[in-house]
């Protein structure tokens, strides 16, 4: 198993290395594309070192992750609570169904104008957009999880005399947990997207802001650094959730 894993990991690196070499030759060695159009690997590396030395990169990464986690937290509290209620009480779900169906397909970015009007500039609008982007996948997967609770397990708990609140805490919530976690996993991807877009418009900090301002200064090296950082943050979140999912095996 371990052997297989190591081999697998090594193979994953082949293509990126080849691409970086090709990229190097096109942009740096033969200089077929000017830097203001697209930077070569050496420009990116230089920008990366500069951003690290100045401490700016860490500050921006921290800002972005902070917003992502804050928005996700709010979306989780609302999405999971509401999801359990709507999943459990059918009539409540019917009551809310149309509103959810209308709000859900609105891209979170469409909330940017209102987010700026309501929350000004700074952390507020980004958190609000993340919230709007994440709350629906979390809500819907929680409702789905509650609906998929094996009715036999509910009956079993009833035959042991479980009260309504015990049914919720001892059966419904643990049984929906895998669905809730996969909803959260989907939401982190959306949260990153929302954060970057939010930062590009209603913000003065974070990776999104850095990407936008660096392009204005023709510092395309920093732009690519910002983009790659988002990718890496995404991989880390994904890895964390995959690990959590392994522990929720039912």
């Amino acid at each position: 198993m371990n052997n297989f894993r190591d081999e697998y990991k090594k193979e994953m690196l082949i293509l990126p290395i080849i691409l970086i070499i090709i990229w190097y030759f096109i942009c740096d060695y033969f200089q077929l594309i000017p830097v203001y159009m697209f930077p070569g690997p050496t420009d990116v590396a230089t920008s990366f070192v500069k951003l690290i030395v100045s401490g700016k990169l860490f500050k921006d990464i921290f800002e972005t992750i902070y917003k992502v986690l804050f928005g996700m937290l709010l979306a989780s509290v609302v999405g999971i609570t509401l999801g359990i209620l709507l999943g459990w009480f059918n009539r409540l779900e019917t009551l809310c169904k149309l509103i959810i169906s209308i709000l859900r397909p609105i891209p979170p970015i469409a909330w940017i104008p209102f987010s700026i009007i309501w929350f000004g500039i700074g952390v507020g609008p980004a958190v609000f957009i993340i919230f709007m982007g994440c709350v629906f996948p979390i809500l819907l997967s929680t409702i789905d999880g509650v609906h998929r609770t094996d009715p036999v397990l509910i009956e079993a708990a009833e035959s042991f005399g479980a009260s309504n609140s015990q049914m919720l805490t001892e059966v419904i919530i643990p049984s929906s947990l895998p669905y809730i976690v996969s909803g959260l996993k989907i939401a982190t991807g959306i949260a990153l997207m929302c954060t970057i877009s939010g930062e590009m418009i209603g913000s003065s900090s974070g990776i999104g802001y850095m990407i936008l301002t660096s392009t204005n200064l023709f510092d395309t090296g920093s732009t690519v650094v910002g983009m790659l950082v988002i990718g890496v943050i995404g991989i880390i979140f994904d890895y964390i959730f995959t690990k959590i999912q392994e522990r929720i095996f039912w």
Binding site: D150, V152, L153, E155, A156, A157, E158, S159, F160, G161, E170, V171, P174, S175, L177, I248, F249, W250
Partner: peptide, 28 residues
Amino acid sequence: GPSNQRGFIFQNYSLFPWLNVIDNVIFG
């Protein structure tokens, strides 16, 4: 309605998959 005065054993085990054996046994 159902009551803990009447135990019910189902055809297909109906154990809680998130609980280990002993926690399943002491569920009631």
